Every structure is written in structure tokens, then in C-alpha cells.
Computed example of a mutant assay.
Amino acid sequence: MKLPFSKKEKHPKPKQSKKVKIKTVGNRKKSVIFLWILLLSSIAFGIYKNFTAIDQHTIHEREVVEANIIDTTAIESFTENFVKDYYSWENETEALEERTEKLSGYLTEELQALNSDMIREDIPTSASVQNINIWSVSEETEETFSVVYSVQQKITEEKDSSFTNATYRIMLHEDEQENLVIIQNPTMWVQPNKSNFAPEQAEDNGTVEATTEQEVTAFLEAFFTSYPTANKQELAYYMQNNALPEVENNYIFSELVNPVYQEQDGQIKAWITVKYLDEVTKAALLSQYELMLEKNDNWMIVESK
């Protein structure tokens, strides 16, 4: 029996679902990249520095200042001789010509010409140098020096005489053979004056007992009585390390004037003025000392300033 032909019904195939691509977006991607770049840059820079670096050492520089002592004896003698000739003259033609000749031994040719009219032939005065004080010799350059000096002149006109005092500065050149020449004319300058400085006066601070003061005073009176005429062996009885020099003068001890004592680290510091009488001049001599004293078996002067 044949089965009636039946047409197979086509059923649509179920559609396969497409795979959905999931894109993961990292929230830290930019920061991670930045860190990698930073790391790589640091490594590269480190390698570069390793090849190009120059060893560096800390150098501690110490400036050593050496005292440069200059012998100014020649400069001072040259200046004194110049001053005597420059500030002395007579109102006579022959004497003035002699003065001009002498000055040629000190001045450049330019300065000789400049000073030719300093003393006129009909000058009514004559002058002589009474005193010269050289206040300073300063090195301006390796070959140039300045000298500040004062000169006292006696000025005579007919029968009248007077004294004048003035301060000047000159400039000198010294060549390799140590020859000297004046390159700047005497120029008005200022003489050093008295300073207003007053040192602090020592005062008794009560650190030394009265009995100790009496002992120290008696010791110092004995010492300064014999000090002017004492020899080294005698001085060694009173002091150590040649604290005071041998003087060998025939002075007579009078008194200690206002001694001041202070205790410092087991020693006694003394500020004293010693009054002596000079038998030759009949004048009083007041010598000031700053001493450090120490007592072992006896009192001794261990230091002097």
C-alpha cells in the first residue's frame, strides 16, 4: 500500500545569533601609558648620564694670605732728603740756582719745569727745615708708592722769623734697580689726629679676698723695687718665662698707683701703674703693666701684656 506522497514541509532554520564583540575600555589606560613612558624615559636618561657624566668632587678652597713686608727705609730716606732741599731756600741768586740743581736729583723733568717758578729770584724770604715727620708709606702698585709727611719750616724775612707746619703727600716710582723718582708734586694732605678711642678700664670685681690682695701687693712692691736694676738670675725669683725684660735703669721705686685685681681660673690678673723717680731728669716715670700672677710655693709673675 503506497503511502500517499507527502511534501516535507520546510521549517526555517533558526538564525544563529551573532557574537557580540565586547569592547573593554580600561579606565586606567592613559595613566598606565604615561607611567610606562615616564619609566622608559628615566631609564634612558640614567643610561645617558652614566656614559656622559663627569666625576665631580667638592673642592674646598682656602685662601692663604701671605704678609708682604716691604722695606721702606730707602723711600723714607729719599723723601727726607727731598724735603730738606725742597723746603729750604735763600733769597740769593746763587743759592736758588744750587737749590734747583739739587731738586733735579729727585723730580721728573716735567716736575722740574713745573717747580721752576716756585721760588722767584726776588723772593723776600728765606726758609730752613726744622723738623720732618713721615706719617705713612703706602704701596699703590708694585712700582708706585705714596708718602705722607709733615714739615716744619722756619721762615725769615729781614729780621723777623716765624714757624710754619704743613702736611703733604708725594708719589714715587721705584724701578727694577730700586732707583726712585718723584712723579707727583707735593700735594696738600691731612695729618693724622688724635683718636677718640678710650679703652675700657679694669675694675675690682670682688673676686679676690682682702688677704690675697695684701699678699699680691706686697709681692709686687718688692718686685718693682728691685726690677730696674735686677739681672736675669734675680728676675727669675719673681717671674717665669721672661715675662718682663731686663731694663737696667737706675730708677727709684715710689709706689703702686691704684692696682686692680681679679681672679681668673685660679690665677690673679693685675692692672697696675708703677711710679718711679728718675734721678737724672728729676721727673716721675709712670709705667703701666697688665700681669698674670700665680701662687705655688711663692707668688710668681707668669705672663705680661
Rank of each mutant, 00 (worst) to 15 (best):
K7S: 07
K8R: 13
K13Q: 15
P14Y: 08
S17Y: 00
K19M: 06
K21F: 02
I22M: 12
N27S: 13
K30N: 12
S31H: 00
V32T: 09
I37W: 12
L39F: 15
S41D: 14
Y48V: 12
N50K: 14
T52D: 10
A53L: 14
A53P: 13
A53F: 15
D55N: 08
H60G: 02
E61A: 13
E66V: 15
I69F: 05
I75S: 01
F82H: 06
V83I: 15
E94W: 03
L96W: 09
S104G: 11
L107E: 06
E109I: 15
E110P: 04
D117A: 06
D117N: 13
I119R: 10
P124I: 12
T125K: 00
S126H: 01
S126T: 03
I134Y: 02
S136A: 09
T141C: 11
T144S: 11
V147D: 02
V147E: 09
V148L: 05
V148A: 10
T156K: 04
S162G: 09
A166Q: 01
E176K: 07
Q177M: 05
E178T: 04
V181R: 01
Q184F: 04
W189R: 03
N196K: 13
F197R: 05
A198Y: 12
A202E: 08
T207S: 03
E209W: 02
T212N: 05
A218N: 07
F219T: 13
F223N: 08
S226N: 07
P228S: 03
A230D: 10
E234H: 04
L235P: 15
L244F: 11
E246Y: 09
V247W: 12
N249F: 12
S254L: 07
S254N: 08
L256Q: 03
Y261H: 04
Q264R: 09
G266K: 08
W271L: 04
V274R: 07
D278I: 09
D278P: 05
S287E: 13
K305T: 05
